[in-house]
C-alpha cells in the first residue's frame, strides 16, 4: 500500500532539489566570478570560503534541507529500481530497513557536521 504517498513526496523532493541543488551548483562552481557568497578569491570551495559559508545560518539551513531532500529522493529512487527486480518480501523489507538506516545515519552525520562546522566558523570569526 501507499505507492502514491511515497511517490508524491519523491516528486515534491525533485522539485525542491531542482532549486536547492541548482543553487548549490551555481554557488560552488560559478560564484567565484561574481564573488557571490565567496568573498575570498575566485575559488568558492577554498577553505576560507567554506568557513565563510559555514558561519552563515542560511547556508546551514540550506545544507540540511538539501541533505534531507536529496537523501530521500535518491534512496527512494534506488529502492524503486531494486524493487523492480522481484525480490522476496523478506528481502524487500530488509532493504527498506537498511536504506532507512543509511539515510537517517547520513542525515544525522551531515546535520551534525553542518552544525559543528557552524560552531567552528563562529569561533574562528569571534577569535
Amino acid at each position: 500500500m501507499g505507492g502514491t504517498r511515497s511517490w508524491t513526496w519523491h516528486m515534491a523532493a525533485a522539485v525542491v532539489l531542482l532549486f536547492v541543488l541548482g543553487m548549490h551548483m551555481l554557488i560552488m562552481h560559478m560564484a567565484g566570478t561574481g564573488h557571490w557568497f565567496a568573498p575570498y578569491g575566485t575559488e568558492p570551495s577554498s577553505m576560507r570560503n567554506s568557513l565563510f559559508r559555514d558561519e552563515n545560518p542560511f547556508f546551514i539551513f540550506a545544507y540540511i534541507l538539501l541533505l534531507g531532500v536529496a537523501l530521500y529522493h535518491g534512496l527512494y529512487g534506488f529502492r524503486t529500481i531494486v524493487f523492480e527486480l522481484t525480490l522476496k518480501p523478506a528481502t524487500e523489507k530488509a532493504i527498506t530497513i537498511a536504506l532507512a538506516v543509511i539515510g537517517l545515519g547520513l542525515f544525522g552525520l551531515g546535520t551534525w557536521a553542518a552544525l559543528v562546522a557552524h560552531r567552528i566558523a563562529l569561533a574562528g570569526a569571534g577569535g
Partner: peptide, 12 residues
C-alpha cells in the same frame, strides 16, 4: 485505488 496505488501499482 487500493490496487492501483499498491506497490505493484502505477508508481512503477
Amino acid at each position: 485505488n487500493a490496487v492501483t496505488d499498491a506497490q505493484s501499482g502505477v508508481s512503477h
